[in-house]
Design a protein around this nucleic acid. Sequence first.
DNA 1: GTCTGTGAAAACATTCACAGCG
DNA 2: CGCTGTGAATGTTTTCACAGAC
Lengths: 207, 207
Amino acid sequence: VVVRRLPIYARALEHLAAASERVISSGRLGALVGVSADQIRKDLSYFGEFGRKGAGYRVDALAATIRGILGLDQERRLAVVGLGRLGRALAAYPGFVDRGFRVVALFDRDPAVVGQEIASLRVLPMESLGEVLAREGVTVGIVAVPAEQAQAVTDLLVASGVRALLNYAPITVATPPSVRVGDVDPVVALQSLAYYLKAGEPSEQAS
Amino acid sequence: VVVRRLPIYARALEHLAAASERVISSGRLGALVGVSADQIRKDLSYFGEFGRKGAGYRVDALAATIRGILGLDQERRLAVVGLGRLGRALAAYPGFVDRGFRVVALFDRDPAVVGQEIASLRVLPMESLGEVLAREGVTVGIVAVPAEQAQAVTDLLVASGVRALLNYAPITVATPPSVRVGDVDPVVALQSLAYYLKAGEPSEQAS
DNA sequence: GTCTGTGAAAACATTCACAGCG
DNA sequence: CGCTGTGAATGTTTTCACAGAC
């Protein structure tokens, strides 16, 4: 749970550092990321003591510490599978590289797409996936294929040694417990939001 | 919390319906979505009694019930702001419409992008946002602009009456509590996954 | 026998409240 | 004073376990 908040703290700290802020209190950081000051202090204390009482946290030191906790000191190498519109957008996304990730391989099963150059990488055929992932040291996969192919692609990535993957396909993929999956179907996100839209529009008022 | 799982159940149920399954037990559904059978029964019992003891749940009836709970019986109209690579991919995403959402307006601040046609919608200038959202009955916004513009775009959407938004920008946006935000920065998702990658590779073994 | 619905127990996460450092 | 670190209290979510419907 804490681990899902740390990247958000890190992101805010990087913005603060870019704005030349040197020190921040749990209260101000909390306001920035929408979390209580208590929460931030608890989260951080779970990993050690980083603050100065009476002053706050040093922005750059804390950012570095969080990156360390998350293992972002080491660059992670990504493969994107499926180069439809979404896959292309991800492959070319400039926001990965300065935050610890680098896309190093692209795969698609469509022969018309294989061979294209996207973000200065050539799209490779699925058959080469295992070999290329091993050679390039890819540890994280991004699944951006249609639902029907998502499980097969996942199995292939898992078999090739990927240990975490981000799944954009609208389906829950099965993996062994040693492989972590992040689900990011935009429709699922929207549908949970939709629940809150109901309040305040139907005939019935809240009591 | 439950509300974040319901869309996943709904998604699985739709796949089951497409495969002509008529009835499903909490156990099988749980296996499909990676959740315990207990959990599913608790989640559903929170909203009423939908199952038949000894048999399970009727797939189509349960799917309809969940759609009702989430308010997906009514189609929600979306606006996409920012038509870079990601915005274009989202604007043209075919997966929205059969799951309760329809993109009805596109906005960008770049005059070179305004006027382009994407997914048979014309990109409109930011200035027209308030008026168009009101006219089109848009209740949900998708923010797909760079971090620097995300807060300003959010404010504009909120001022125009949007009640929920999905934020792809790498920044935490502030909104009044009446507006729900879903955060979907891919890098944040990857960074939490990265934490688990550390296990099993550094020098130290777990004890 | 299979599978739901649900209280009771356990685990987990958040908030409170305060001692203590700078 | 302001702000951190943390035990204790509270609240929430998950799991357990079992009674009852089919």
